[in-house]
């Protein structure tokens, strides 16, 4: 379903890129999410002081609270992966919340974005695994009995592929569904503010989905760090 009006598409239209931007709203709005995050990061890090003030306070609570949470799941080794995880969380959160602003398209409502994020998260968990266990990481895929290796290897490979797909489709499905419901209700009863309750629930959905994506990536990294079963 086509979005009725997109703000960034008209902005790109000023440079004669309207057709491209209309076909790739997830790309342009992903750039917007990146810009928002970079600006916020710059604002937070601009005047770091020992006694935190307003903006720094908020970011410190968010960042350090999440860091303790990640470390409580993965153990001390997971602290190195934390920058990636919090980036994923903040990016997905900003991307999801964009769906609630009129004339904005949530970049996470496109399967391209979520697939890229899931591939990065799961791929990184394997990098962490190889990094921690070296060549022995392959034991994670071989099961307990050596005789059963031909059976266990494809099973484990399928299970690990399912991780990528489940991350991809959970986020994509939720955001796409939310976007679609809002659009349909807007067309049917926009004059009576019909999409409002769904949009109110969308705040919750955006937060929960961002958190679930972050939590599952953390757990995959934790699974790669721990010893083979």
């Amino acid at each position: 379903m086509e979005h009725p009006y997109l703000f960034l598409t008209s902005v790109f239209g000023l440079f004669g890129l309207e057709e491209w931007a209309a076909h790739h709203p997830h790309v342009t709005y992903m750039w917007l999410a990146m810009v928002i995050l970079i600006v916020f990061g710059w604002l937070a890090g601009k005047s770091v002081s020992l006694v935190p003030e307003t903006a720094q306070n908020v970011f410190e609570v968010l960042i350090s609270g999440m860091e303790e949470f990640v470390v409580s799941i993965t153990g001390e080794e997971g602290r190195k992966s934390y920058p990636l995880l919090i980036s994923i969380f903040l990016f997905v959160l900003v991307g999801n919340l964009m769906g609630l602003v009129p004339a904005f398209y949530p970049p996470t409502a496109s399967v391209n974005t979520t697939m890229a994020l899931a591939l990065i998260a799961v791929g990184w968990s394997h990098v962490v695994g190889v990094w921690h266990h070296g060549f022995k990481y392959i034991k994670h895929f071989l099961g307990p009995v050596p005789l059963m290796i031909p059976l266990f290897l494809p099973i484990e490979l399928i299970a690990h592929t399912a991780r990528v797909l489940s991350l991809t489709f959970r986020l994509f499905g939720n955001m796409m569904g939310h976007e679609l419901v809002v659009l349909i209700l807007l067309m049917l009863g926009g004059m009576f503010l019909a999409p409002l309750p769904v949009m109110a629930m969308g705040v919750f959905v955006a937060l929960v989905q961002a958190f679930v994506f972050f939590l599952l990536s953390t757990m995959y990294i934790a699974g790669a760090i721990e010893e083979a079963h």
Partner: peptide, 22 residues
């Protein structure tokens, strides 16, 4: 810890379905 378990068990259903399709 509770959230971690919640995430694990909540993702169980979809991973079963997707494994079969994969």
């Amino acid at each position: 810890k509770n959230l971690r378990e919640l995430g694990y068990f909540a993702s169980l259903g979809i991973s079963v379905a997707l494994s079969i399709f994969i």
